[in-house]
Design a binder for these strands. Structure first.
Lengths: 150, 150
DNA sequence: AACTTATTGCAATTTTTTTTCAGTAGAGTA
DNA sequence: TACTCTACTGAAAAAAAATTGCAATAAGTT
């Protein structure tokens, strides 16, 4: 018996259907592109990437699609910086936390099971249904540490 | 020998001096008001509260002051919601995490030492200087859980 | 008191996100 | 396949959030 593979496209399509919405080419293209970006992204970057590939998808559509992708758990907000939100796709990735250097702005990911423990236990204790959790460390990386932040 | 008490005002004044900036009435009023708010706040709310107390401090000044308060560790960004940032004062408070209900928008604080452990260990391992860390759980509270998010 | 220069409020600007609207096109039904 | 209903789209306008320019003011030092 073969293992059925559920792709992010399937998940999104099912979600869209279940909500009585329409699975459009634009939405699929946006999703595909997001899963091509193996890094954090913002709306502008996504828009430009689509544009460079010849897609004429408006920013409005991007702004309208992202909340759907977040709702079905394929994408999450990572941090707010420079006045706008940064995202990442998460399907197929282990949960992870972020360290962000306030000086060079580098972002590192790391994993620690205790974080999931904390949220699992909190959820159990208070009867919460966890949609997602996020842990972020802000500071100065080894390189920038001495240099008085800049 | 008496224990010297350092207030948030002292901290801010020292920080301002050390940076060669000026300790102005506006900055002090903003700081005092922030420490009167025992909850999360956003720029607009702070502005309105000051206004209601007869202070004519501009939003520009608030926007210019908050980064200073963050830099000296008196204030932190808590979460970004409804298109803008929400803050809280932190001096004199134990570090804590947040749970945010995606339906009723209630925010609860909780404490878990493992979170500090995680960031302390990460910092040690990679030679990072931690400025702050933040843990947030998003989901549906016990009340909202059944009701299909709204 | 004089001086230097950071800070202020206001208004204008910039940036990000949301909304409006008219035309288009999914997707179900006849 | 044609028909119908209504969600979706891009473009532009609007709204909201945050930043900046500027002239007047005032902090803090000499």
């Amino acid at each position: 018996m073969e293992k059925l593979q559920t792709s992010e496209l399937d998940i999104f399509r099912n979600f869209i259907k279940k909500k009585g919405l329409r699975y459009t080419p634009e939405r699929e293209i946006i999703l595909r592109e997001i899963f091509n970006i193996h890094d954090h992204f913002d709306v502008d970057e996504l828009y430009l990437r689509l544009r460079n590939k010849g897609h004429r998808i408006s920013k409005a559509s991007i702004y309208r699609t992202i909340p759907l992708l977040i709702e079905c758990g394929l994408v999450q907000e990572v941090y707010h910086e420079d006045g706008h939100m940064h995202y990442e796709h998460i399907y197929g990735h282990e949960p992870h936390a972020h360290f962000r250097c306030l000086s060079c702005r580098r972002v590192e990911e790391f994993r620690d099971e205790r974080l999931e423990e904390v949220s699992r236990e909190y959820a159990e204790k208070y009867g919460i249904e966890v949609k997602m959790s996020r842990f972020e460390i802000l500071g100065y990386c080894a390189n920038c540490k001495g240099k008085e932040e800049g």
